[in-house]
Design a protein around this nucleic acid. Structure first.
Lengths: 200, 200
DNA sequence: CATAATACGGAGGAACCCTCCGCATGAGAG
DNA sequence: CTCTCATGCGGAGGGTTCCTCCGTATTATG
């Protein structure tokens, strides 16, 4: 689940210094993209991490690779939280929490995702990471939704795909301004109200 | 209205060769971005147009400038069509046609718009083009909506901003695949059905 | 036609992306 | 602990792209 053990599989389990640098670069890359956007100068990453450019490019041969790795990392964190929410006492509150997590995630990462789509469109080798993430997110959402449906708190004709498309639509069109964000919050709340079962 | 007369205002009316090159570069740039996406190599544009790079960069000093100009051009074309639709005999059909135009526009230009948002975020001078376009599009949409409302064919509690946010949301989250596009068409149709007045 | 204002072209500096290869270091055997 | 070698590191440097600068060419005007 935690990505710190990735890249281990094929033969040997990756040398200790390589693993250290890999993880360090990934952390620093997330920082740099957060500050400067997904088209930040890649050489800033090894520079800030205090390693050589060669090291960086061996771990992540191009922009697509590092963007994917950062994205993957964030999705993994989200999926872990979704799994934890499955254990929460209230199925309805767990679903609400999940929706809020999705909202924050989309808001923060829409630039990164757009860049990923773009580099993917350009590159010769279409990414497998994005479709996989989508599928995993959907599965995680469905689990939470089914539990809430079993508890009788939300409508039974809704699936994760529907929820995700609605949230995406609302959030991606939101302005970057505080009012835009508040408006997105409001619309998502209204949407979730429509999804809930209201007994009289 | 037509953008061929822009850049004329401040003092003199722009030399003939300059105007020619400006318009030519704008046309070629639209082609190049269409083929290679908004992060295409800028030098391809003057090369393909058969002029020097210096000429290109004098007219459009950086990527943000040329992206904005191309975007502006497309919005102008849309606004002209909206104005024409105001003269159409059926207010209801005019609104439907407008929605369809919006849908096509968003589908085709979402990459360009994302790039614009990104270069804007990076640049020191925030663009005034995007907000202006948004406002103009909204005004154009409102005019068509109000006419349809006066004709009694759509609900009276809807404004262009609502329609735009819904269409944007649906279209931007659509897959690039044919099914994704068909799905977007379907959802927009459903949405418009909800906006219409249904007499019994 | 002469002159001044304007525009053109492309060389070149700076930034960036990525590759390559000589050197360093960690992992496992003895 | 030492030796060996597979693995990893660093950074010089080549190719590309962005953009600037300025000598030359073209257009507008009297």
């Amino acid at each position: 689940m935690d990505a710190t053990e990735e890249r281990a599989s094929p033969r040997r389990p990756m040398r200790a210094d390589a693993r250290r640098n890999h993880d360090l670069l990934l952390r620093v890359a997330a920082e740099v993209f957060e500050e400067q956007g997904p088209y930040a100068c890649l050489e800033d990453i090894p520079r800030r991490a205090g390693v050589g450019v060669g090291t960086f490019y061996r771990h992540f041969p191009n922009r697509q690779a590092i963007l994917e790795a950062v994205y993957r990392e964030q999705i993994d964190a989200l999926l872990a939280k979704a799994a934890a929410l499955l254990e929460a006492p209230s199925a309805g509150e767990a679903l609400d929490a999940w929706v809020q997590l999705m909202l924050d995630h989309i808001l923060k990462q829409r630039g990164l995702k757009a860049a990923l789509i773009d580099t993917d469109r350009t590159s010769a080798t279409p990414s497998t990471v994005m479709p996989l993430c989508k599928q995993q997110m959907r599965a995680a959402g469905d689990a939470l939704i089914e539990r809430a449906q079993a508890a009788g708190v939300i409508r039974t004709d809704v699936r994760a795909a529907d929820l995700h498309q609605m949230i995406h639509g609302i959030v991606q069109t939101a302005d970057e301004t505080p009012e835009g964000l508040a408006q997105a919050q409001r619309l998502v709340a209204i949407m979730m109200d429509g999804v809930r079962v209201h007994r009289q």
